[in-house]
Design a protein around this nucleic acid. Structure first.
Length: 473
DNA sequence: CGACGGGACGC
DNA sequence: CGACGGGACGC
């Protein structure tokens, strides 16, 4: 609730909630209040008077809490005679104080609304949806002129301003209903925003990952980490803050082939903030260092990962070349999908059958089955705030993950930030998602069993979820 | 460390 | 014809 007793806080908020009255000079504030109060919450009445004579200039303003109240009062009171023997009053929606214009606001400008609708919405759907707010003159869906496909936008023209105002105030907020700007010939509105937007699924093309080779892997491209230094199957993980062995285990076990993980402890058994990891093959170790060196775990704490001597001699030129080949194949697997993985199994000596399945713990996430999304115009009952580390995953991947808890309405990533919002139609589903994913690392993730054209690397992305601060529900 | 998008009509 | 006051912003 705004405090409308504080004058500086109100201009014309909400829009079109203030009336401009032309009356006989004899009409008083009391009379106006008496006749306009029945239409709603009158927040302010101001009868304009001459500074010197204090005589009314026959002009008044009546501020309502809602536009629909003001519109209804206008419709009912325009042309009425407030006091016997005085001239009929005129009632208009007042021009906003900042506009400076004194032109009457026409009904034309107050009866047509502009809405966002599902692409599947027909004009009949539109009419059906909005007729509850009043008589509709027409409802049209904006379509692509050549293809005839809906742009997901529409106009609804009502007969009365109060009906349009009611629609704007009360319709589902996903319609984002606003008053339509009157049409002009100068319309630079040929911008084809929506049709241009549809073909942005680049990240789904096989071989065209959302994380192109090199973008996250400076050491590979720059060649600083691994071609000059030792490469082994053993890694030392160092952390400034104590991290439980289970956490380290879970993290490094996300990469297949881990066969050993142990915290280094001092003589009293206290953790020294270091862990030793061994993989069954070079490729896994290279990959683990590549992905987890510098990774923040827990958030704010950078893990450092380095090769340590595993006692094998790989100093010969041939050995080095073999290692580089292995490393390159690991990388190609990461970014190019199962064909690469196939390569790894044979060349890097990793075979699923040769490794006992380790029990997954802690950071591994078992996801429910895929569920249908909620209708796009569903009321959002709960929203999760998500922080990604180090960076957000592609929206389509996130949708695939978050839809599995049910009633997902939308995944929205804040542009240029590592945060986003996950909207659910059902509070329980949001809570389930939060319970399952809060603080978790999503492992190497297969988009679906039936669509194994490629898999996505989710390793190293930690979700933190909370309810957003204040969300008008 | 990490906070809130997108929108326009053949005369 | 008929267009913009009063009061005091907040920790």
């Amino acid at each position: 609730m705004e405090d409308y007793n504080r004058p500086s806080s109100y201009l014309d908020d909400p829009p079109n909630s203030r009336l401009f009255l032309v009356t006989s000079k004899s009409i008083t504030e009391d009379t106006i209040r008496e006749r306009f109060a029945p239409f709603g919450e009158v927040q302010d009445i101001w009868v304009v008077k001459d500074k010197q004579t204090k005589e009314s200039k026959g002009v008044s303003f009546v501020k309502f809490a809602k536009s629909s109240q003001a519109c209804n009062a206008m419709e009912e009171m325009h042309g009425k005679c407030l006091v016997e023997g005085t001239k009929p009053i005129k009632v208009f929606i007042a021009q906003s104080r900042s506009s400076g214009s004194h032109r009457d606001v026409e009904d034309e400008e107050l009866t047509r609304i502009f809405v966002m609708i599902p692409k599947t919405f027909t004009e009949e759907d539109l009419k059906e949806t909005f007729k509850t707010y009043g008589d509709i003159e027409y409802a049209i869906v904006i379509k692509n002129k050549s293809t005839g496909e809906s742009k997901g936008l529409g106009y609804v023209r009502f007969h009365k301003p109060s009906q349009a105002a009611k629609a704007i105030e009360n319709c589902d907020k996903t319609f984002r209903a606003i008053l339509a700007e009157p049409r002009t010939k100068n319309s630079s509105a040929d911008n084809d925003y929506f049709s241009n937007q549809r073909s942005d699924h680049v990240g789904n093309e096989p071989g065209l990952s959302a994380y192109p080779f090199g973008a996250e892997s400076s050491s590979y491209a720059a060649g600083d980490g691994w071609n000059s230094d030792m490469i082994t199957r053993c890694l030392m993980v160092s952390s400034r803050v104590p991290v439980a062995q289970e956490q380290i285990y879970s993290l490094f076990d996300l990469i297949p082939g881990m066969e050993y993980c142990e915290m280094q402890r001092d003589q009293y058994g206290f953790s020294k903030g270091q862990a030793m990891i061994r993989y069954s093959n070079l490729g896994s170790a290279v990959y683990a260092k590549e992905k987890l060196n510098g990774f923040e775990y827990p958030p704010g704490n950078r893990l450092s990962v380095a090769f340590i001597d595993d006692g094998e001699d790989r100093t010969s030129p041939v050995g080095k070349m073999a290692m580089q080949l292995v490393a390159a194949q690991m990388m190609s697997m990461v970014w190019n999908g199962p064909s690469g993985a196939q390569l790894m199994k044979t060349t890097a000596g990793y075979a699923a059958s040769s490794l006992p399945q380790k029990p997954r713990v802690q950071t591994d996430v078992v996801l429910p089955s895929h569920k249908k999304l909620a209708a796009p115009d569903s009321v959002v009952k709960e929203r999760l705030f998500v922080i990604f580390n180090p960076s957000p995953l592609p929206v389509d991947i996130l949708e695939d993950v978050f839809c599995r808890f049910g009633s997902l309405v939308e995944v929205y990533l804040v542009p240029g930030r590592n945060v986003g919002y996950i909207k659910y139609a059902d509070r329980k589903h949001a809570n389930d998602a939060m319970a399952a994913l809060h603080g978790k690392v999503l492992p190497h993730w297969h988009k679906s069993l039936s669509d194994m054209t490629h898999d996505f690397d989710m390793t190293g992305r930690i979700f933190t979820m909370t309810r957003p601060h204040s969300y008008g529900q």
